[in-house]
Design a protein around this nucleic acid. Structure first.
Length: 542
RNA sequence: GCGGCGGUAGCUCAAUGGUAGAGUACUAGCCUUCCAAGCUAGUUGUUGAGGGUUCGAGUCCCUUCCGCCGCUCCA
């Protein structure tokens, strides 16, 4: 990409959102009703772009996966599991516990905290609580004078919304413990740890979307829309082992929708409540997990580069130990420099070493046996002269899992950002320089003018080419206008039927990025285009 | 969720409390032999939604929805 023509600023983002709407890539969902927060519709061109990325991922992961670090072919299969699974799935995965906490919200400042951890959070994180501790000599000096002094001075700043009782009838209970004292100060309420404001009643804040399977909306019928596609793979791990001929190490890949009640959906399609994921779970022997983690980390970065993204716009970011999810032994994010995060980076894909957490959990909750008996390993150990005990112990295990999990809808966003160009000197100042493989429309087919037999030839060529390529035929208006329109939606090639087509059987192929033109024989057009659409080296642009 | 700003045609934007407009796009026709040319005609609005004040509201007030920016959140 050309950095000079592509500025990474919020203004760029607005231009991209506007162009994406205008040309039918992405619409806000339910727009005629005023829109609905966190949901987006992919228009005629958006769905083509999204499908192209999805198909490339599927091709690179399932049909043509990379050869393993030991030079051996790895087994990889696909899956499309249900969005709704047994509710116990989410208990086992930890989502119910971590997603469904009772939360309380401060009515003054809006701070949200866990209701069941109120006292812990207050005593460890509240500034005004620290001051109160000091002022009352660790809760031993709770006479009205001391308290009034604290309320009138320090608390005025650190806890402005603390509903301290009127000073005239200030009468804290005798020898209160700290919790009693604070409830007294806050007028019998638990006050906000930040501002001292009144906390609302506890509410279930569930980041998983809820529905009911069955006619009655009872707790027995409660189900969740999946917050990630991964669990569907773990649930089918045994099915796949039993019904296909894969052997550990192997991977299962899946593309599909996931749903999360994000607190703040924002930044166009970056964080939405319904989104599409491309996830792969790679099952391997425990002592090979780190090797495969490094392998996939590298492979996944190569894949993003294969979309034509500038290396300088991508980076790895290792998760800090305290940042790791409850299941993960190591996680690295692949991040992209989005216009709205620049010069910072934002998440694009996470590659997690999940250990044996998921399979062990599902084994525990379901009672199904999810161990793997590794005959290859048994043989190898035998050859190495290991003891019977060691062989028995080592060749039966719960596989470890390496999970590259990426967002398909985020990939769409990245390509829109990465391919966006602004160039004053061109007829269409704005255009998308998609790598040909991902362009929604590959070829525009035009008669130079709408007469002299040119439309007939162009139409025939269109009917022929569209069998293999996404094409558009357009005989209307000036040729420059039609080129510009194609540039704007990122079409890499235009084929124009001109006067020489009737006399010499040649057409003009016009290239989006350079605006250069080639003469090609009519019979060679298809081969000419196919060669350039599939050739990696033609990607002068993204 | 909180605070600030905003929402008018598909898009970019005008419009002292007094007739809702421009550019562009789009459609049809003419013209046009390679980069958004021109001419003619045409389509396009519950001014985000709901309520209020007023003789009269795009404009003032209230509520709500959506968006942007900053916090907060993002197992």
């Amino acid at each position: 990409m050309n950095p000079s023509s592509s500025l990474s600023t919020p203004q760029t983002m607005e231009a991209i959102v506007s162009l994406a709407k205008r040309r039918g890539f992405v619409y806000q969902a339910s727009e005629i009703y005023g829109g609905i927060r966190g949901f987006w519709d992919y228009g005629p061109l958006g769905v083509l772009l999204k499908n192209n990325i999805r198909d490339w991922w599927w091709r690179c992961m399932v049909e043509c996966p990379p050869v393993g670090p030991d030079g051996k072919i790895v087994d990889m299969v696909g899956l499309d599991s249900a969005i709704i699974q047994h509710p116990k799935t989410w208990e086992a995965s930890g989502h119910t516990a971590t997603f469904a906490d009772p939360m309380r919200k401060c009515e003054k400042c809006g701070h949200i905290l866990r209701a069941d951890h109120y006292w812990d959070i207050l005593t460890t994180q509240s500034k005004w609580f620290d001051e109160l501790i000091k002022a009352t000599d660790n809760g031993s000096k709770t006479d009205p004078d001391t308290l009034i002094r604290w309320v009138k001075n320090k608390a005025r700043k650190s806890a402005p919304n603390l509903a301290a009782n009127t000073f005239s009838n200030f009468a804290p209970p005798p020898n209160p413990d700290l919790h009693q004292l604070i409830r007294y100060l806050a007028d019998q309420q638990d006050p906000c740890i930040l501002c001292g404001g009144r906390l609302g009643d506890p509410e279930q804040f569930n980041l998983m979307m809820i529905s009911y399977a069955g006619l009655q909306q009872t707790s027995e019928n409660l189900v969740y829309l999946r917050p990630e596609t991964a669990q569907g793979i773990f649930l089918n791990y045994k099915n796949i082992l039993d019904t296909t001929r894969v052997k550990v190490p192997f991977g299962v890949a899946q593309v599909g929708k996931s749903f999360r009640n994000e607190v703040t959906p924002r930044n166009f399609i970056f964080r939405s409540r319904e989104f599409e994921q491309m996830e792969m779970e790679f099952f391997c022997p425990p002592d090979e997990a780190l090797k495969w983690y490094e392998f996939w980390k590298h492979q996944r970065m190569q894949w993003w580069l294969s979309l034509g993204i500038a290396p300088s716009n991508l980076r790895f970011r290792d998760h800090e130990p305290n940042e790791l999810s409850h299941y993960s032994k190591a996680t690295v994010d692949i991040e992209y420099k989005y216009p709205f995060t620049a010069p910072d980076f934002g998440e694009l894909e996470g590659i997690a070493h999940r250990g044996d957490f998921d399979l062990t959990q599902h084994q525990k909750y379901s009672g199904a046996k999810l161990e793997y008996f590794d005959q290859d390993l048994q043989l190898r150990l035998k050859e190495q002269g290991a003891s019977q005990d060691e062989i028995r112990q080592k060749s039966r295990y719960v596989p470890n899992v390496i999970e590259p999990a990426s967002g398909l809808t985020r990939a769409v966003l990245v390509l829109l950002c990465e391919a966006y160009r602004y160039d004053e000197s061109r007829p269409s100042k704005e255009y998308f320089a998609f790598k040909p493989r991902f362009a929604p429309v590959k070829v525009g087919i035009f008669p130079l003018v709408n007469k002299d037999g040119m439309p007939e030839i162009a139409e025939k060529l269109y009917l022929n080419l569209r069998k293999r390529l996404t094409c558009e035929y357009d005989p209307k208006q000036s040729i420059g206008k039609r080129y510009a329109r194609m540039d704007e939606i990122g079409t890499p090639f235009c084929v124009t039927i001109d006067g020489e087509t009737t006399s010499h059987q040649t057409v003009t192929v016009r290239h989006r990025d350079t605006q250069a033109q080639d003469k090609v024989h009519l019979s060679q057009v298809e081969a000419y285009l196919l060669e350039r659409l599939n050739d990696e080296s033609t990607s002068s642009s993204i």
